[in-house]
Amino acid sequence: MDLTALSDFNLVATHGGFGRASRVSGQPKASLSRHVRALEESLGVRLIERGGRALRLTPEGAVLHARTVDPFSEIAQAAEELKAGIGRPRGVLRVSAPLLFAHVAMGRLGAAFCAAQPDVRLDVTAEDRLVDLVGDGYDVVVRFNPRSDDTLVGRRFLSDRLVLVAPPNLQRPSTNEGTPELPAVVRAGRTDVALWTVVDATGQVHTYHPRPVLCFSTPLLARDAVLAGAGAAILPRSAVAVEIASGHLVEWGVVQAPAIECWVLHASRRLVSPKVSVFVDFLCAYFAEHSE
Rank of each mutant, 00 (worst) to 15 (best):
L130M: 07
F101T: 01
F144C: 01
R143Q: 05
E40Y: 06
R88T: 10
R90M: 11
R121H: 09
V142K: 00
E40C: 07
D119G: 09
R53E: 09
V36R: 03
R156N: 15
D119R: 13
Q117V: 10
G135S: 13
G110H: 08
E60N: 15
P118D: 03
A111Y: 08
Q77C: 08
P89G: 01
A78F: 13
E80V: 08
A115F: 08
E41N: 13
R155P: 07
P118G: 05
G137I: 06
A116Q: 15
K83C: 15
R156C: 06
A112W: 06
N145L: 01
L122G: 04
A38K: 08
V134A: 13
V124F: 03
G135C: 02
R129K: 12
A116G: 10
A79V: 15
D136S: 08
G51W: 06
P118E: 01
Q117C: 15
A54H: 14
G85A: 04
P71N: 12
I86A: 14
V140S: 00
A102Q: 02
F157Y: 08
P146E: 04
F72D: 07
F72C: 07
L55F: 03
L133R: 04
A62K: 10
I75Q: 15
G137W: 06
D123Q: 12
E80N: 14
A54F: 09
A102Y: 00
A112E: 10
G26R: 06
E60K: 14
L64P: 04
R90G: 09
V92L: 12
P146W: 02
